[in-house]
């Protein structure tokens, strides 16, 4: 249960696949246009339920509660060995083998 005043993420379907704009490519027409907005719950709600929230600019929005306390989890990703190799080769190209060993 999320409480009134909790910071949450709400999701909406803006357009169903059948309502998508005519110029949209076929693959995009297969999926709905979805929207995600964060705000403070105005009433207690459960994950997966319809909920109402107030956003940072004071708009009141409705949508499905999909996440409580949404966090940033993006990162620099997995190690990419090719980039390390490229770095070393650039230094060698500039300063020579000797300077690098």
């Amino acid at each position: 249960m999320s409480k009134k005043g909790d910071w949450v993420l709400l999701q909406n379907v803006i357009l169903q696949p059948s309502e998508r704009a005519p110029q949209v490519p076929e693959d995009t027409k297969q999926v709905p246009l979805k929207q995600w907005v964060k705000g403070w719950l105005t009433e207690d709600a459960e994950i997966g339920q319809e909920a109402t929230a107030r956003t940072r600019t004071g708009r009141v929005i409705k949508g499905t509660l999909v996440e409580e306390a949404p966090a940033y989890t993006h990162s620099f990703g997995q190690f990419i060995p090719e980039l390390l190799k490229v770095q070393e080769s650039i230094k060698t190209a500039m300063w020579g083998e000797e300077a690098q060993s």
């Binding site: 803006i14 704009a21 995009t28 246009l33 929207q35 995600w36 907005v37 964060k38 956003t55 940072r56």
Partner: peptide
């Protein structure tokens, strides 16, 4: 405030 959407030119409508 950030509003995030899935792919599509109908972003303009939103």
């Amino acid at each position: 405030e950030v509003i995030q959407l899935s792919v599509g030119p109908e972003l303009f409508y939103v």
